[in-house]
Amino acid sequence: MHRVYEDGGREIVLTIFRHNPNDEDSIPHFQDYPIIERPGMTLYIALTQIYTSMDHDVSFDFVCRAGICGSCAMVVNGKPRLACRTLTSEFSEGKITLLPLPTFQHIKDLSVDTGTFMNAMTKRVEGWIVNNSPQDISTIEKPIDPELSDEIFELDRCIECGICLASCATKVMRPNFVGAVGLNRVARFSLDPHDSRSDEEFYELIGDDEGIFGCMSFMGCQDHCPKHLPLQKQIAYMRNKMVKVC
């Protein structure tokens, strides 16, 4: 049972996974941190308070603290989420268990390495504009249909937080699966009139079991995506396109 204090703050307990894989003496374990909840408290505020006033050794990753940069994905009571956008008040029992995001290289405690995977994924799917015609940037830009530009923007909103991969069954079986993040990226460039690649060329990039044919449609990615991207629709759209090519 949690106590309720006079100023209205209740006591909540954060149970944090602790381990430093680079330290031979470190043994993986959980550690409890009881704190007083404040109005509007997010996991960013709670973890920062624990770090500055209770345990100066606990590691986690926050950068923008506003749900924009994608740094702070972790597993919160069994679900992958952005910690900065998670309010402690959502958990009526006042017990919050935090684990590092699975499928990424563990760094320490709640910190994982997403950069290595995301950069490799970008190279793997060639997640950039391909266009070899010469461009003169002092001339008026190529006109783009306004609605199409908005549609591309919609898919460009992915923040590479890694939550889609942490929610993905295929990723567990196929470590090199590019995931919804990679497939959405390809869908985004296939829409872009600046990009000259044909469907055949995209097929070369993702037409295998580590690409578009790896997805088993469990939809964990879409369920947990913090940007609410239409991932399942994009994967279906790309699969449909790729099947026509092969």
């Binding site: 950039w128 504009i129 783009i144 872009d192 600046h194």
Partner: peptide
């Protein structure tokens, strides 16, 4: 600056467009 924005358009920034 105008060249920068046009270069970014070529690199895929989905700038909001005029109707």
């Amino acid at each position: 600056a105008p060249k920068a924005i046009r270069e970014l358009a070529n690199w895929g920034v989905p700038w909001s467009r005029i109707s």
